[in-house]
Amino acid sequence: MATSIFSRKRDLLYLIYFCTAVPMAFIVDLQPLYPPHLIPGWMLGITEYYIKTFNDQYFINEPVWFHFFMMSELFIQVPVMVWGIGALLRDSKLVPLVLLPLALLVFLTTTTCIFDIAHWDAPLQERLTLMGLYAPYSALPLFMAGDMFLRLKSVIDSSSVVSTKAGKKNR
């Protein structure tokens, strides 16, 4: 029987992150991929408010590479997060193996955006505010990647001990 998600604090954090990131991906992040006539007014309102408040150039003058990042979000990140929600609830043994590359991808794409924002021709305070919005979406995946790496290392280390003991018995 799976250990309760409430007793696995890091997994609970990842679950909450996925449960908020997936809807936000479809409501805001991926909106530039939708045919304009299919975007409901309330979603346009959220994006217009976001652009007006933060002047995020990715939603005003989308660079071609940013489109690639959106495609990775649509075809890799969101499906893995959806899988991750169920896997975390089930306490699946595959969680570290699947979430490590996801965490690295999200960290890399988000950190690339932060680095790019730092070099925009915009007022410093505006850039700092926007980088502050992006930073948690870089920091949490970095933490997750370290956690998943250590979980995988633990499995590998324990299997090495077992195989070493088995090898000594067979001599």
Rank of each mutant, 00 (worst) to 15 (best):
M1Y: 13
M1K: 15
M1S: 13
S4V: 04
S4E: 14
S7T: 14
K9W: 10
K9V: 07
K9R: 12
K9D: 07
R10K: 13
R10S: 14
D11N: 15
D11Y: 04
L12M: 01
I16R: 09
Y17C: 08
T20K: 11
A21E: 14
A21N: 13
M24Q: 14
M24E: 14
I27F: 10
L30K: 02
Q31H: 03
P32N: 15
P32Q: 05
Y34E: 04
Y34A: 05
P36R: 12
L38Y: 13
L38V: 13
I39W: 05
G41R: 00
L44W: 08
L44G: 04
G45V: 02
I46Q: 01
I46T: 00
E48T: 09
Y49K: 11
T53P: 08
Y58R: 00
Y58W: 04
I60R: 06
N61R: 03
N61D: 05
V64A: 02
W65S: 01
W65Q: 03
F66Q: 02
F66M: 01
F68D: 15
F68S: 05
F69A: 06
M71G: 15
E73P: 05
L74I: 14
L74H: 15
L74V: 13
I76E: 03
V78Q: 06
V78F: 10
P79K: 15
V80G: 03
M81C: 03
V82F: 07
G84F: 09
G84R: 11
G84N: 06
G84H: 10
I85K: 01
L89N: 09
D91Q: 11
L94S: 07
V95L: 04
L97N: 11
V98A: 15
V98M: 08
L99Y: 12
P101S: 09
L102H: 12
L104C: 03
L104E: 10
V106H: 01
V106M: 03
F107P: 01
F107D: 09
T109H: 02
T109M: 05
T110F: 00
T111M: 04
T111P: 03
T111A: 08
T112M: 00
C113T: 04
I114Y: 11
F115H: 03
D116M: 04
D116G: 01
I117W: 00
A118W: 05
H119W: 05
W120T: 01
D121N: 04
D121C: 06
A122Y: 07
L124C: 07
E126D: 14
T129A: 14
M131Y: 05
P136R: 07
P136C: 01
S138R: 11
S138E: 06
L142C: 08
M144P: 01
L152I: 00
S154C: 05
V155M: 00
V155W: 11
D157V: 09
S159E: 14
S159F: 11
V161A: 06
V162S: 06
T164V: 10
G167F: 05
K168R: 06
R171L: 09
